[in-house]
């Protein structure tokens, strides 16, 4: 009897102070905090071991080179929070960017084409969403089909790199704006692509935490059946999640194409997995219901920084990159297990 009484009073409003209590309420934040800690540790290690990491131009480049991945990871966060997965985003980028460059080179209005590139992503997302929600196809299979479709369509359009003219308005998105003109090349630089990524993350954060639609995303991840019985719009929300992911993949295609100035059908192979890795490293549970879009940004930056460090080291063979990525991923998944286990106590 005494144990039940104890348990009954466990959730009693305790002193709101103290780290233990704070952790108890925010145990979901732990993996994300760990990602931030690791990111900071990597910066410190890089600075100590190789130098020239903690300076404006390195960090600017980190953002500029990973803007597309941040956008992808933001979209993937929505999908994974519902307990789903989207494997099609890499292929969407390939198809969207190849068709975009071809259309611009064919003389279409570049601004219109950029809009179209985003909408191509939305169209893929809508298709996946309908397959998943109304034809009851597993998300894995539906988006796998979309991945093959996108990749195939891109290859039908062209199998060689398609170059954009250097004066194309698309490349404006990759213009460097110097915010701080530092000594030598050490400038704090920003591109419209980075600004787009920041806005996307901001909106995603707002939607997930401050709208009913966002809370429904979390509820679906917790228990889809319960969410339905609670009267939440489950089918509509699940459809939206894939539309968001597809649309952001289209947007990422625009940002990436602008930076690179060319497109090819093999662009973006494996990026869906990078996006998933970034999301998981950032603390989102693959089973859904727990995670933060800001965590996914940190996850994307961890992956990006890792590449920088490996390049700087010079001694690590490039082939080892994927192994290191795998190890980091594993560490984070184990960390999540640990948190889950603690929660069950």
């Amino acid at each position: 009897m005494s144990t039940t009484t104890m348990r009954q009073h466990a959730p009693v409003r305790a002193e709101s102070r103290g780290i233990r209590n704070w952790l108890k309420l925010h145990v979901d934040l732990l993996p994300t905090l760990a990602a931030i800690v690791i990111f900071v540790a990597m910066i410190i290690y890089g600075e100590v071991a190789y130098g020239r990491i903690l300076q404006a131009n390195t960090l600017s480049n980190l953002l500029i080179n990973n803007a597309h991945l941040i956008i992808l990871a933001a979209g993937m966060t929505f999908v994974i929070l519902t307990g789903g997965i989207d494997l099609s985003v890499g292929a969407i980028i390939a198809f969207s960017s190849v068709s975009g460059v071809l259309l611009i080179n064919a003389g279409w209005d570049p601004w219109l084409v950029m809009g179209l590139m985003v909408l191509i992503g939305s169209a893929f997302g809508v298709t996946s969403g309908i397959l998943i929600q109304y034809f009851n196809v597993q998300p894995f299979i539906a988006t796998l089909a979309m991945m093959f479709l996108g990749r195939g369509l891109a290859a039908m359009l062209s199998t060689v790199p398609e170059r954009l003219a250097d004066d194309s308005p698309v490349r404006l998105l990759a213009t460097n704006f110097k915010l701080i003109d530092g000594p030598k090349v050490n400038d704090l630089v920003i591109t419209p692509g980075v600004i787009i990524a920041v806005i996307v993350v901001g909106i995603a954060f707002f939607v997930l935490h401050r709208t009913r639609m966002g809370r429904t995303v979390y509820a679906i991840g917790g228990s889809e059946q319960s969410a339905g019985l609670m009267g939440l719009p489950v089918p509509r929300t699940k459809l939206w999640v894939y539309v968001i992911s597809g649309t952001l993949a289209g947007l990422a295609a625009v940002v990436y194409t602008a930076r690179l100035g060319s497109a090819q059908n093999i662009t973006g192979i494996g990026w869906e997995l990078d996006a998933i890795a970034a999301t998981v490293i950032g603390g989102t549970l693959l089973t859904g219901g727990v995670g933060f879009v800001l965590g996914s940004v940190v996850g994307a930056l961890v992956l990006g920084l890792m590449n920088v460090l490996i390049t700087r080291d010079g001694g690590i063979p490039p082939e080892a990159t994927t192994i290191i990525t795998g190890c980091i991923l594993l560490v984070f998944v184990l960390l999540q297990r640990l948190v889950l286990a603690r929660r069950r106590e």
């Binding site: 959730p11 009913r212 809370r215 917790g222 228990s223 609670m230 939440l232 219901g289 727990v290």
Partner: peptide, 16 residues
């Protein structure tokens, strides 16, 4: 009880 385990008590009461 059809509630969502991963969200807070407040949210479970007020969802929607």
């Amino acid at each position: 009880s059809h509630l969502v385990p991963n969200l807070s008590v407040a949210e479970n009461v007020m969802l929607g």
